[in-house]
């Protein structure tokens, strides 16, 4: 295998992981934009999605497409419920209070999963059975193709939804100025619920793709992709939808390149180092808007 092939393969690996990060990062970013909070429990929604899919396929023995829809619905409902129970009462509290509550919610989901499913990893056979293809000597596994197709389709759909539909413009209005949006007759509560539902549904899809790649389910499986995606969202400029996509993919590529060519152990340090450097050069992230305080 020559260097070109090896670099291309690593690039594709990075693109695959990165697009999963991007899906999760979109959830962080949308929620941040609209509720001005870091939803620390977002990573654990991925984990819930993974278990939901597993249960849907085994205990409920649903056919695959139905199981996938079941997973997405479970996560969306969970997202709405989390917001209603834990975050909504704290709308007027400090952002730190909300952050800690979100952390508490993350612990809660993890410990519930621990009690129900125990800490033993559940092996999971990938639901993607597509064969890989070979282009110019570069192997492209089926899972990569599916992941890229699915994430691209979702991102296009989401962009269209936010920019072209009435509900999408309500979301943009609420994230710009909640008070003004309410005065314009937008139902703020419903818009926030919708944002959490969409973000969590994206996390469900990300969760499905993620376990197809790692083939095992544990109560803490959401923590690592969660934190990486959080970094990706900030990298791209938190609150910015295209920023989350760019940040996620960039992060995935940096991670896979450093793992392959520098050091597996230092890959995380390099990823975080890139984040620090980018934020120091551009304090609001790649595509974020900097709001200067008016004196």
């Amino acid at each position: 295998m020559n260097l070109f092939q090896s670099i291309m393969e690593q690039l594709l690996n990075g693109l695959r992981t990165g697009s999963i990060y991007a899906l999760i990062a979109l959830g962080y970013s949308m929620v941040y934009g609209i509720a001005k909070m870091i939803n620390f429990a977002h990573g654990d929604v991925i984990m819930v999605g993974a278990y939901a899919l597993f249960m849907g396929m085994t205990a409920l023995s649903l056919p695959l497409p139905v199981a996938i829809i079941f997973t997405i619905v479970v996560c969306a409902v969970l997202g709405i419920a989390i917001e209603k129970v834990a975050y909504k009462p704290l709308r007027n509290a400090s952002s730190l209070a909300v952050l800690i509550t979100a952390i508490g919610m993350s612990f809660l989901l993890q410990s519930l999963a621990l009690i129900i499913f125990s800490a033993t990893p559940i092996p999971f056979k990938s639901i993607i059975s597509m064969k890989g293809i070979k282009i110019a000597g570069v192997d492209i596994p089926g899972i990569t193709i599916i992941t890229l197709v699915v994430t691209t389709a979702i991102m296009v759909a989401l962009t269209l939804f936010i920019n072209k539909t009435k509900a999408g413009s309500a979301m943009r209005a609420v994230s710009e100025d909640r008070g003004a949006a309410a005065l314009m007759g937008i139902n703020v509560n419903r818009t926030i619920s919708m944002t959490f539902a969409i973000g969590s549904a994206l996390a469900a899809v990300a969760g499905i793709l993620y376990i197809c790649q790692y083939q095992s389910i544990t109560p803490t499986l959401g923590a690592l992709p969660g934190i990486k995606a959080f970094v990706a969202a900030v990298l791209g400029g938190i609150g910015s939808i295209p920023g989350a996509m760019v940040g996620g993919i960039l992060l995935g590529i940096v991670e896979s390149m450093s793992k392959a060519y520098i050091s597996t152990e230092l890959a995380d340090a390099i990823v975080f180092g890139v984040l620090v450097v980018i934020l120091l050069v551009k304090p609001s992230g790649l595509l974020g808007k900097l709001k200067a305080e008016k004196v």
Partner: peptide, 28 residues
Amino acid sequence: VPVLRLRGDYLAIVTLAFGEIIKSVINV
């Protein structure tokens, strides 16, 4: 010193990153 340029959530994530970098470097 570098963190002076950042505020709020961005500062939070950079300090988290520094913590993780320190951990990874000690690991190596």
